[in-house]
Design a binder for these strands. Sequence first.
DNA 1: CGGCTTGCGGCCAGGATCCGGCCACAACGT
DNA 2: ACGTTGTGGCCGGATCCTGGCCGCAAGCCG
Lengths: 318, 318
Amino acid sequence: MDPTARILRLLSLLQTYRHWSGDELSGRLEVSPRTLRRDVERLRDLGYPVETSRGTYGGYQLAAGTQIPPLLLDDEEAVAIAVGLRTAANGAVSGIEETSVRALAKLQQVLPTRLRRRVEALAVATETVPGYTESVDPDVLMTIAQACRGSEQLRFHYTANDGSETSRLVEPHRLVSRHRRWYFVAWDVDRGAWRTFRADRVARPFANGVRVPPRELPAEDAASFVDTALRSRPQPFTAVLRLRGTAEELRGRVPHWMGEPVADGTDSCLLRTGADNLEWLAISLAMLDAEAELLEGTPELVAALTRLRTRAERLTVH
Amino acid sequence: MDPTARILRLLSLLQTYRHWSGDELSGRLEVSPRTLRRDVERLRDLGYPVETSRGTYGGYQLAAGTQIPPLLLDDEEAVAIAVGLRTAANGAVSGIEETSVRALAKLQQVLPTRLRRRVEALAVATETVPGYTESVDPDVLMTIAQACRGSEQLRFHYTANDGSETSRLVEPHRLVSRHRRWYFVAWDVDRGAWRTFRADRVARPFANGVRVPPRELPAEDAASFVDTALRSRPQPFTAVLRLRGTAEELRGRVPHWMGEPVADGTDSCLLRTGADNLEWLAISLAMLDAEAELLEGTPELVAALTRLRTRAERLTVH
DNA sequence: CGGCTTGCGGCCAGGATCCGGCCACAACGT
DNA sequence: ACGTTGTGGCCGGATCCTGGCCGCAAGCCG
């Protein structure tokens, strides 16, 4: 049997975090113990440390090394990873959206179709934060990401700010995550210019398979291009609060992402916070485990808080 | 150079979702084009479909097949996957917690220490749902999972229901996720009996490296054992609501995980829902985009709703 | 301490493979 | 029609892989 395939199987056996005796392994791989020892040695040469123990109940086990060995996944694990990455890519964890999309693109590229269906089925069951539903369809995101990577042309329908829908043909350059939203920079073929698009406004994206040589972006990088484009847009919703208590006391009671309370007098703090979803901001304020006073807030925010209050009232008064 | 290593490098190049010409690939791998063709053939034999195109701008690309090829990740991607799986394992996505833990255990086992630190740093920055913070430390979960898998003894400190803390030595059998919580079944060595523990009440778990032959659990499987143990516990919080509107109208406005509204009369529905976190349930009810009436709810739930109302009131009245 | 188990790695010989080079051929784009 | 690029058969020589054998070392147990 082919040594390459055998090494991969050995790796996959060792990755199950189990203690394997030499006999078990050589039995499963259908080779002599001597060959197994050589295979283990080969793995070590490749940089994947296999720990061994001798004597009664001795055997082999894979340990953490300096590089990551090829991950051999079964169906379920692959689905779990895909689902986890999708939520992460949608901003559930801040700071790794872009990497999540990259990893997801890599996985998606090789994911058998039967598993894709399972991923989708599970993603539907994703528990969303109440009132916070605005997110991109990960499939759209993936199509864009793969078109970027493979420098393929992309055709899609785009809903502009004013609600008008157009059909576009572009050469996507890069995806960028900003403020819990996905944008991408692309060369608009019809208009002959660089444009920034919001991924959540893209419908029916389709990579037509036409490969084109990558273009040079007239900016330092895609992120700064998007930032420049965004600078002229309206700000998301913000609020300023006065909280009762010292900064010390409030630490741990104010969620991390809301920002740091700043001392303001002996027994109160100022909290300057914001979010780009109104309902979400309202809930977060109402859930603050502290005596709070709203110093600044748009009328919409006040309206959202009032809505929340009214609903809670209706529910508690029979 | 070793063919095994070369095949892995080839796989890693192909996984970047790019179009590679034969010359590029054979150049990178430092072999002749003929050998590259043979390597590609070998990949195909292993079941990983490599698509090719001929003619000008021809080349190779990895496609989705029937099985998942070994995933070759760089540092950042591995971190993103680990973080994504941690959130998924903590119940952010329902239904795949157990698989996420399994995949995470596999990854964790081989994750270099430098990356572990990065995963932890990022996990701290995880945005949590306001008011919903009860979760297990993923490191604790991992230690337990790996002790189960490797049938190692585990020592830890456990906080019982009444708050008393004890030190335990057990042989862990299996992790089980139920109702957004993690439990595990283990043979308690000191007490000589099977016990169910809650993972979030475990502190300082330590696998002492002592391997023991697996014991047989006196139940069909671990999940049913946990269910039996849980049956005598108090139920999580529940509520029954009457919503205005037909089932048709309410579909899409009621979050999936809350359950299905059931028609009750011509223009109203009954919704029977529950959660095991009081604050979370209260928010979810208050955020329902429908005219609602609370038919049944424990006094605690009413109190939580009142708290929410009061806070929203304070914020809107200056 | 001695016996048992289990892994280690050197050595050997026969056989399988791997590799590069060559070639006629088949798609594909221009 | 022509150039480009991948395909796969064939060949010869170098390399390797494998299994068997061995003496050895490291744990475990009594």
